[in-house]
């Protein structure tokens, strides 16, 4: 029992929490940006895969690490454009289109990998983002080792939380984004373009999702594997509801999920096989389901979420 609590005092546990949470932070921010504008983006799972694959491949082919990040973001934005065009001006079902984008992006990523490496068993590794070397923080007890294990990519995630929060709350653009997810007629009546805002939001949100995938290959695993995304995108969709579409709470939700995942890994080693490991693997997902059951009923969904808008029609 004491051992189970002691985990919480290990710097290693907290470092792992942040590492696991980082791709989720990108994913939830991306999902909430799309949904704030009124578009559900279930392409997220596939966009994660495409971002992971394209960022890693770009670096493998010789681009610098940040170049890989940029490529992943552009690829994400491209899939966002597909989803946006199909769901916004054409008004197709957002569920069906999103799942289609997930299948398309996943398949293209796997196909691209197979074309690039026809006869390779283990994927080649790249030189990933190195751990941060922070001259002053390094020597701070506890905090030093935790941050010392993170990379600059993680800092980007935290920066994105702050930037997105500020943009949504404080800028004219954020105002327009929040309005278009609540009442597109209001946006139209004020002379702004509903289509432009929504497609823009979906593209930017999809770029963020792709960064979540790229983090896994460029900072965590240093290579691309099939099945490595493993439902992270879907978790982000659930965490978006948990976060009530707020960047700050998105960070909190991602960290909570990361902590549970890091905790169950360590719990497995303590119990030493007495309990099947699958039970522990379930824990973070059980948390997601419980959070949804408790919160989704009261959730204050953007009013125009999933409602296509056609100009001049009421």
């Amino acid at each position: 029992m004491w051992a189970a609590l002691e985990i919480l005092s290990q710097a290693n546990f907290w470092a792992a929490t942040i590492r696991i949470a980082t791709p989720l932070i990108f994913g939830v921010l991306g999902a909430l940006l799309c949904e704030r504008a009124g578009v559900l983006n279930l392409g997220i799972e596939g966009i994660f895969v495409a971002g992971a694959m394209s960022g890693w491949l770009a670096v493998y082919l010789g681009l610098p690490l940040w170049g890989g990040v940029l490529v992943a973001a552009l690829v994400g934005a491209l899939f966002g454009l597909i989803h946006g065009v199909l769901t916004v001006p054409l008004g197709l079902s957002q569920h069906v289109t999103g799942i289609g984008v997930t299948l398309l992006a996943t398949s293209i990523a796997y196909f691209g990998y197979r074309v690039a490496f026809p006869n390779v068993g283990t994927p080649p590794r790249i030189d990933a983002f190195p751990p941060l070397d922070l001259p002053l923080l390094r020597d701070v007890p506890f905090l030093g080792p935790i941050l010392g294990q993170q990379t600059a990519f993680t800092l980007l995630a935290f920066a994105c939380v702050i930037v997105l929060a500020l943009v949504l709350a404080r800028t004219p653009l954020g105002l327009a984004l929040r309005a278009v997810g609540d009442n597109p007629e209001a946006v139209e009546a004020q002379g702004l373009s509903v289509v432009g805002l929504r497609i823009g939001a979906v593209m930017a949100g999809s770029a963020l999702m792709a960064l979540g995938g790229a983090f896994l290959t460029l900072s965590a695993f240093n290579a691309f594997y099939f099945g490595m995304i493993n439902g992270r995108g879907w978790v982000c969709i659930a965490l978006t509801v948990f976060a009530s579409w707020r960047p700050g709470k998105a960070l909190l939700g991602a960290l909570l999920f990361g902590a549970l995942d890091a905790y169950q890994l360590r719990l497995q080693t303590i119990t030493g096989g007495a309990v099947p490991s699958q039970i522990f693997l379930m824990l973070p997902y059980l948390f997601s389901i419980a959070a949804l059951v408790l919160l989704a009923r009261r959730a204050d969904y953007p009013r125009a979420l999933m409602k296509p808008y056609f100009k001049g029609q009421r």
Partner: peptide, 16 residues
């Protein structure tokens, strides 16, 4: 009304 209900009155007025 063409108002975004999640925005304040002021925000609705300056929108756009």
């Amino acid at each position: 009304f063409a108002l975004a209900e999640n925005l304040t009155g002021f925000e609705n007025i300056v929108l756009g």
